[in-house]
């Protein structure tokens, strides 16, 4: 092994055209990937009193705010579900997606200092981001199940809800959100590296996209003539299926999911291409 590496010749030359991703070198740096995930996780809540509890408290607070504003004041129906479960289910999958998206949007600008001094496959950073977001998602999912059980058995309400078989698609839904978030994040990282204007836009973009996703409202409440446009949003079927699997409310359409998967792959591949193209020159204009 050592002698193979020793004789490995690296050729440095201007890149031209489509270059395949060097997955071998990402594998070589797998320890770095692991350590970065650990770093993100460990450092996120250092010097806080509640520490990792924030992983759970943050979406819980947001859920409570949504319950008050959209449930109580705006009285948007929640398909007969307890508002907390309704909003929380949409939020946890959405916030995983949005952390992959906005977290990666500034890959080049946040790591500029390191990128100017050391070479390693730059894709490691976005990948680490997606994986460490996954840990937060899993914690939130466990707490969702806890809320679910509390509502199901301790606070019985008229409208019944239960887990349905599409819950088996949950891993697929998570992968879809992460690939879509990663793809969009890579696109944005390329744009923000060159034009900082996009740093300003990213916040609106994520928020705008959230309102176009059935999180604070069920898709069934959308008038038919607009429903087509909402379902163009590749995250819409993901959130709907996620909710359908966990709470038996929402919709499940394999065709829409397939559509999401195709869009996610297209965005991801084009994002990776742009990212690859950018990473080799980016230090010249960071």
């Amino acid at each position: 092994m050592k002698s193979i590496e020793k004789n490995k010749i690296t050729i440095i030359k201007p890149s031209t055209g489509w270059l395949g991703f060097d997955f071998a070198s990402i594998w070589q740096y797998r320890d770095l990937l692991f350590l970065l995930v650990k770093r993100d996780f460990v450092s996120a809540y250092k010097q806080t009193i509640l520490g990792p509890a924030w992983f759970v408290l943050q979406p819980l607070f947001l859920t409570i705010i949504f319950t008050l504003i959209f449930g109580k004041f705006a009285q948007i129906p929640t398909e007969g579900l307890p508002p907390l479960l309704f909003y929380n289910s949409g939020l946890i999958i959405w916030s995983y997606f949005s952390s992959c998206f906005s977290g990666n949007a500034s890959t080049f600008t946040t790591n500029a200092g390191t990128y100017q001094k050391v070479y390693y496959p730059r894709l490691i950073n976005p990948l680490a981001n997606c994986i460490s977001g996954l840990l937060g998602f899993l914690i939130q999912l466990i707490f969702f199940i806890a809320y679910f059980l509390i509502y199901k058995f301790l606070l019985p309400i008229s409208e019944p809800f239960t887990i349905t078989w599409p819950v088996l698609l949950l891993p697929l839904l998570v992968i879809l959100s992460s690939l879509l978030g990663l793809g969009l994040g890579l696109w944005m990282s390329v744009l923000t590296a060159k034009y900082r204007d996009f740093n300003q836009i990213i916040g609106f973009l994520v928020q705008g996209m959230m309102y176009l996703t059935p999180i604070i409202y069920p898709l069934s409440e959308i008038p038919d003539k607009y429903r087509f446009w909402i379902s163009l949003n590749p995250m819409a079927p993901v959130v709907e299926t996620f909710r359908f699997g966990l709470l038996s409310k929402g919709s499940f359409s394999p065709l829409h999911l397939l559509y999401s998967a195709i869009i996610a792959l297209l965005i991801l591949l084009s994002g990776m291409y742009l990212f690859k193209k950018t990473e080799r020159r980016v230090v010249d204009y960071l």
């Binding site: 590496e5 020793k6 010749i9 690296t10 030359k13 890149s15 100017q116 070479y119 230090v283």
Partner: peptide
């Protein structure tokens, strides 16, 4: 920077045999 693969050349090539470690700064990251 070119030899440590931080940026790429505009023209020409550099061939490098083996594992490279570049210390353009200490404590990076």
């Amino acid at each position: 920077k070119i030899l440590s693969r931080i940026t790429e050349p505009s023209v020409g090539t550099a061939k490098i045999r083996g594992k490279v470690a570049s210390l353009l700064e200490v404590g990076t990251g």
